[in-house]
Amino acid sequence: MKIIDKSFNFSKVYEFNVEMACDGCSGAVKRVLGRLSGTQVSSIDIDMEKQKVYVTTTLPSENILAKIIKTGKACSFVGERS
């Protein structure tokens, strides 16, 4: 029997392309999104090779994208990961 964690059942994983030249840049993205965490953002995964950021959140993707845009890095919303 698979136990599904009901508390996060409406949270989704969004994929973003984010131009990150170094660890400082990925650190900056993590720090900005980290401020949202708690109930709204449950995980932030960054893939430096593919320049991708995966965010598990209950917030709409536009809110997350707006936060990333504010860091001054080139970024775009790819879509929802199933």
């Binding site: 030249a21 170094c22 400082g24 840049c25 650190g27 900056a28």
Partner: peptide
Amino acid sequence: IGMTCNSC
């Protein structure tokens, strides 16, 4: 605090 490279 948090800058590590010139692009930052």
